[in-house]
Design a protein around this nucleic acid. Structure first.
Lengths: 301, 301
DNA sequence: ATAATAGTGTCTTTCAGACAGTATAGT
DNA sequence: ACTATACTGTCTGAAAGACACTATTAT
């Protein structure tokens, strides 16, 4: 088929591309930002008690304008010759030194004035890492990158009925704590139902020491993580290679923010794990069998 | 607090922004693309039988390079002064004439060479519309925008175990049919599990008449829609104001791609709907009560 | 009368919730 | 011995699956 395809201007593809001048059009910057979660143990004074766990997020302190001094999700501009996901991986590696972790795209943020420098579209990724693979203290020493414990609580709810639907607003107060400081951004979730139209929107209404609209990403990611815990095996990405079932349960409890019954929890996750020959001893009480994640359960074909 | 904050170069924010030259940095283009779903009735010859339903997607024929002549999701470049979601709404309105529909961000695509002209990041949105609000034939007349019925079937599956995990590949064959043509792209889903790392990837391995990587968006969006049908009330966005429970069930069946039992379906969705005084008659069999969506059930505070 | 759907009743099965009870270490 | 956890057994209740049955209409 020696026939050459031409467009309406009579150009071949080669001619078209040669004449295409990308510089003519203004374009936004694109960044990737990583929401990095991990779960680690709090210190425990009572030798018998199991340590409590807490959810942590990695933040970096901005060293320049805009939002100088505020805390942001680690991230940066994408390179022109690197895939979007590779950019997220690169940034993740630069911050945490880790290469093979769970990484999932969350959402893209694109409000016009979210960055004072220029129009910036930010693609947010969520990473889950097992705290046993990294030294949390390392982040603590550095001046600019720290792990913060994360809690989100509902601060207010308001629902107003309109003629054809309603407007629901929820305000979440985030609490990000470090040894020396606490950030308390407020994020508002708005759901507008008007007849057949449903609009869902997250918006930072008080930055509380956080940069840009990153508090919104944290709240959104936290909700996504919570949802996925219930119907996927995502939580295992936060676990070490070997773990006891009680440790696993505590991780679920932190994520779901509620207590679970031991017997039914074990029944439910039974098919996701496999017993090992190892046993965890020396805790001042009965020893526990160590399990590992069983990837064979899923994707059966 | 008359104190002025300065960065390491001694600049104030004002000075910093004045000196910031966005033109110095190369940057990608950003587009939005809409995956627009609707469900409509097929013609039925037997006056007694209920019409079958089918899932449809709106595609436009590309009139210029690259991929001239191929079918693409409707979309376009974002304006520099419009929010990302507003861009999606604008494009949606330009194509369908509809303003208030369900619109949800799906994912952002950012492979380096996905567009021959320039580096392009595309933010995909999924829109759900009720086919009774639009004239499907209108799209049929126009040369460049048409509704295609959509089916996706698993064409092959392959799972290979490695030392520390496995690689799972599934190939989906999409079937997009119009009165006069059929597109059959192949999309490959790859899940790579290596120890603690899980990587999920969608990739178009045969474009089959579709432009860019848009077949990937269709497969991804379809899976998202299917998932959400099971645990949200998203399906009502595809329904008209009034509907019978059997019609609703057929929509669920199309989306979930399996038959449901009438009695248990009705029990399950009972709290999502409210009965009206209207009745659907004239169908050659017993009349049916018309229901409407009951938004009050959810978000109870 | 008939074909096709509308709508309900109920038995079975499955699974989560609840809670008690036994076992086992380290100090 | 005591405390805190490990782990299992079993009752209960809620909800999904399965299926049968009656009612209703336009032709």
């Amino acid at each position: 088929m020696g026939e050459v395809i031409r467009n309406k201007k009579g150009q071949t593809e080669e001619e078209f591309l040669r004449e295409y001048d990308a510089a003519k059009y203004p374009s936004p910057f694109v960044t990737v930002d990583n929401l990095i979660f991990t779960i680690n143990n709090k210190e425990e004074e009572n030798y018998r008690k199991l340590p409590e766990k807490e959810l942590k997020v990695l933040l970096v302190k901005r060293g320049d304008f805009p939002d100088i001094g505020a805390w942001a999700l680690p991230g940066g501009f994408i390179e022109m010759d690197e895939d979007l996901k590779d950019a997220a991986k690169r940034e993740l590696f630069e911050e945490s030194g880790l290469k093979s972790v769970y990484l999932e795209q969350l959402e893209s943020l694109g409000r016009v004035n979210r960055d004072k420098r220029h129009r910036v579209i930010s693609v947010a990724y969520m990473a889950l890492i097992d705290s046993s693979t990294l030294d949390l203290k390392a982040g603590d020493d550095a001046d600019d990158a720290k792990w913060f414990s994360l809690k989100s609580e509902l601060a207010s709810t308001n629902k107003e009925y309109t003629e054809t639907g309603y407007v629901l607003k929820r305000v979440y107060k985030l609490s990000l704590k470090n040894t020396s400081l606490e950030l308390n951004p407020l994020v508002q979730y708005t759901k507008t139902v008007e007849g057949k139209s449903v609009d869902i929107n997250y918006e930072v209404i008080e930055k509380g020491g956080m940069a840009f609209d990153h508090a919104e990403v944290i709240q959104y990611g936290l909700e996504r993580l919570r949802n996925k815990v219930e119907y996927t095996s995502i939580a295992f990405n936060l676990m070490p290679e070997l773990f006891t079932l009680t440790e696993l349960q505590k991780v679920y409890e932190i994520l779901l923010d509620k207590e679970l019954l031991k017997a039914s929890f074990r029944r439910k996750i039974n098919h996701l794990v496999e017993e090992t020959n190892n046993i965890k001893k020396g805790a001042g009480h009965a020893p526990a069998v160590l399990y590992r994640y069983n990837p064979k359960w899923e994707d059966n074909i």
